[in-house]
Nucleic acid binder design. Sequence first.
RNA 1: UGACCCAUUGUGUAAAGGUAGCACUACAGUUUUUGGUACUGUCAGUCAAGGUUCGAAUCCUUGUGGGUCAACCA
Length: 557
Amino acid sequence: MEIEKEKSLNFIEQIIEKDLEEGKNEKRVHTRFPPEPNGYLHIGHAKSICLNFGLGKQYNGKTNLRFDDTNPTKEEDEYVNSIIEDVKWLGFQWDGEICFTSDYFQQLYDWAVQLIKEGKAYVEEQSAEEISAQRGTPQMPGTFSPFRDRSIEENLDLFDRMRLGEFENGSKVLRAKVDMASPNMQMRDPVLYRILHAHHHRTGNKWCIYPMYDFAHGQSDYLENITHSICTLEFENHRPLYDWFLDQLASGDRPQQIEFARLNLNYTVMSKRKLLELVEGSYVSGWDDPRMPTISGLRRRGYTPESIRNFADRIGVAKRDNVIEVSLLEFILREHLNKITDRVMAVLKPIKLTITNYPEGEFEDIELINNPEDEQSGSRIAPFGRNIYIEQDDFMIDAPKKFFRLSPGREVRLKGAYIIKCEDYKTDENGNVIEIICTYDPATKSGSGINRKVKGVLHWVSAEKSIDAEIRLYDRLFNDEDPMGHKDADFKEFLNNDSLKVLTNCKLEPSLATAKVNDKFQFQRLGYFCVDTDSTENNLVFNRTVSLRDSWAKKRK
RNA sequence: UGACCCAUUGUGUAAAGGUAGCACUACAGUUUUUGGUACUGUCAGUCAAGGUUCGAAUCCUUGUGGGUCAACCA
C-alpha cells in the first residue's frame, strides 16, 4: 500500500488531505454510505460504497452504514436486508452499529421545535399546489405564504398537534423560513416535516410526521460525527440548505458535503424506477436476474466482488458526467476470472464424433491442467474413448483456409489427448451433419514428446461418461448504448430479444458433477460460467458470466 | 430567461503555470496444446476566441455545448 504512494489523488482525496493538513475535525476522516431502503442496490451504488468505505480505510478513518428511512410509504425491511447483504458481499464492514435516520426522529423533532421557537420555522396550511405556485420560478422570486408570520405560540401548538395526529395527511407541513427570493429554489422556504399516517418499518406507529431528506440528512451526518458527506451531483443545489440547517443547529465540527458524478454504464439503465419497471413487467426474472445491473444480479451472473471493487477503482471519481463502456467492466471481470478459475471442458451444442481406430468399450484417463495461470491449481482426470462429443461450430464441410478446426481431410488436436483426422461424416435426410468420423494417431498423445504441430485444438467430452446440464447464455439486456437517450421511444423498445438463450442437453466433463452453486469455471474456448442458484443435483444449471474474447468471431464478419 | 456545476484521443481518468501520460476500445503483430492469456506496436485529445505570462490543459474574460434545480421523494 505504501509503495504506490505516487498515485495521483482524485478531487475528494485532495480535499481530505487538505483538511487533514489544516487539522480539521481533529484530523479524523469519517464517511458514510446512506441508502434509502426502497429498492435493490445496483452497480452505481457500488461506486459510492467503494468510494466511501475506501476513503474510510485509506485514511484510517471510519465509515457508517446508514439507512435513510424518512419515508415510511416506500421503505421496507426486505430492502434493508438485501442492502446489508450486498455491502457485505462487496467486502466492506461498517464501523459500529448500523445506523438509521429514524433513530434520530426525536432529536430532529426537538430541533424543529427549536427552529420554531427562534422564529425560523412555521406551520403551513396551504395545499402542495398552492405552495408550489408561490414558490415562483428560477427566474421569478417566490411570494410569502399567508401563514409565514404566525406567532411562535401558534406554530408550537400546531406542530405539536401535527405530531399528536390531529390532522390528516397533506393538511399541514412545517416549513423553514429561509429566503423566498433566493435564486436557489431549494432555499425558498423548504418543507421540513410532512404528515404521513403510515406504518414505519422501524418506528411503527410512533410517529405520524416525518422529516424531509433535507432536514434529516445533514443533521444525521452531524450526529454521527461524519466529516465528509459524499453524495452525487444532483444534490449540489442542496448544499447551501445543508449548511443553513447546520448553521442554525450545530456547533463544533461539522460535516461537509462533497458531490461527485454518478456512474453511468452503456447498454443498460441504472435508475431504480426503470429497473423496477423491468421487474414488474416481467422483462427479467427479478431483481437478481443475471442481466440486471443490480449487485444481486451481478453476483448471480458470476461477477466477483474483487472485480467490482477493482472496476470502481479504475473508473475514477470526478465531477463531469460520464458514461463508462461495459467493455471495461467485462475486461476487469475476465482479468480476475482468468486468474482464479479452473479450465474445464463443456460442449454446449454437441455433435457425435467417432474415432474408428480406437477400440470399442475402452477408455483411458487424460490428465488436464486446471489453470495454467495458477501453478497451485494442479490437474484432474477426464475419460477419453472412441465416442466423444465436440462443438457443432468446430466442424465445417466446406471450410475456408483460415478455419483452424475440423473439416474433411483436416487434422486437429483434441485438448490434452490426441491428434485426429476427419475421414468422413454422416448427414440426416435434411443434409444436417449428425456424426463425424475420424481416426486418431496413437503416437500423438499429449505429453508424449511428439512434436507435430496442428493449427486447431478442440475441447471435447466423452459421449458415454459426460454429464448433462442446462446452460443459460446471457448477453446484454439492451441493443442500444443509451436506451434512455431517445425522446420519442420508450427504453423498453431497445431490449435485446436475444439477451437470454437457454441451452439444454449440454455435455460436461464428469468432474463437474460435484459443482456447487456459485462455483466458477472457465469452459475452455467458450467463456466463464458459474453454477446458478436454480441448479440442483439432478439438474445442473450454469450461467455464462462472460464470454472469452473471440478474435475468430470478429474475423468471420 | 435565474442560480449552481461541468468541458483533455471513441470511452474513462491523470498532469496543482514547465515533455499532454495511463487504462479500456479499435487495428496490426509475436508467443501459445484455449482463435483465451501474456507481450509488442499503430491510430487518436486539451470546446472556441481573446487576455495574463518567458511559458497556459491549468489563471482571467467572453462565448459555445452539456448537466442540475421550481415533490408534502431521496
